[in-house]
């Protein structure tokens, strides 16, 4: 495709200033240095936008594809665990306790004689639900509040900052022990609610700082000088440039939330048996690590892979959203 220099005579219709309008050599070179061999969509091609470019970029990224498939698989087995296992996680046979791998039971049995494979598959639902829903809640609540505080400043910002200070002072595990021990419901919702309650200040602080940095850029001032509304400034100019740290922190937090659910379940205030969760299984298997390491390793491995997959996905999305890294 035509690239680089543009004929100055065409650019300035007969002003006699063609010479001065000519692009400098280095400017023309800068244009040639496009990644992808000077390609890029032609003038008649589809208009590029941040998201369509990011998606095109992600589809070519093997890291993204691998971990996106892992996450899709996790979501799939969370929704339909019976698709890949015929057993029930609650059917246990004490006589087979701590037995190793054998045909039909590839991961062996845990201390209660339950099939580790089935329990690991069924445990994904809890972990994925807690991780995804808690992160969504934290990200939406935290980034909206933080972005508004950072953008508008003033009294609202000061009040919000003090409130986040208060929440930061609450120790997570102690707070969980106190708050969740009074709740008798054995579902994931109290755990998710608790994580959102304690997690949003972190995201709100990140979003606030990021928005304050972005709003000082001249392009925000330029848009303001054009008469752009506050919502346009926030959504079109500030948010796309402030979202990267939020995505990174949110995906890392997603991993820690899954681990936090496991911790709370281990301590007996998260989910309780007969619910199935990796945290419960890790907790139950840890005293027998010498006799039956497989009962600990499989749920732990699943937890580690899930956390890693979300972190890598977040990393890939962040990179794809930055045109400079393409």
């Amino acid at each position: 495709m035509p690239d680089g220099r543009h004929e100055p005579e065409q650019a300035i219709a007969g002003t006699g200033m063609g010479g001065t309008m000519d692009l400098g050599v280095d400017e023309a070179e800068a244009l040639e240095k496009r990644p992808g061999g000077g390609g890029g969509p032609g003038p008649e091609g589809k208009p590029r936008s941040l998201w369509s470019d990011a998606w095109r970029d992600l589809r070519r990224n093997p890291v993204f594809i691998v971990f996106a498939l892992v996450i899709l698989f996790l979501v799939f087995i969370s929704l339909w665990p019976s698709a890949i296992t015929s057993g029930s996680p609650l059917t246990c046979d004490l006589s087979r306790a701590q037995e190793g791998s054998r045909s039909g039971h590839p991961f062996g049995f845990d201390g209660q004689g339950c099939d580790v494979y089935t329990r690991t598959v069924y445990g994904a639902r809890t972990s994925v639900a807690v991780g995804v829903l808690a992160t969504l809640g934290v990200a939406v609540l935290g980034s909206v509040l933080g972005a508004l505080a950072g953008f508008f400043g003033g009294v609202g910002d000061s009040v919000l900052s003090r409130i986040t200070d208060v929440f930061f002072a609450i120790p997570v595990v102690l707070g969980g022990l106190v708050l969740l021990s009074v709740i008798t419901s054995n579902t994931v919702w109290p755990v998710i609610g608790f994580i959102v309650l304690l997690g949003w200040p972190q995201l709100s602080r990140i979003a606030r700082g990021s928005v304050i940095t972005a709003k000082q850029n001249d392009y925000v001032q330029a848009a303001r000088a054009l008469g752009a509304s506050n919502s346009r400034l926030l959504l079109r100019h500030i948010a796309p440039n402030a979202v990267a740290p939020v995505i990174v922190v949110a995906t890392i937090a997603l991993g820690t939330y899954i681990a936090l659910e496991a911790t709370l379940s281990y301590l007996g205030v998260g989910l309780k048996p007969p619910s199935v969760s990796w945290g419960i299984d890790i907790s139950a298997a840890s005293p027998y690590i010498r006799n039956a390491p497989h009962a600990l390793l499989w749920p732990s491995g699943a937890l580690a892979i899930t956390v890693l997959a979300f972190i890598m996905l977040g990393d890939a999305v962040r990179d794809a959203l930055d045109p400079k890294l393409r």
Binding site: M1, P2, H6, A11, A30, P43, K324
Partner: peptide, 21 residues
């Protein structure tokens, strides 16, 4: 075209240009 840039660079991002451009 008026400012002396190639109109076909419509779809490019700012970092693909030099300071003067």
């Amino acid at each position: 075209e008026l400012v002396g840039l190639n109109p076909e660079h419509y779809n490019r991002f700012p970092h693909e240009f030099s300071g003067g451009q």
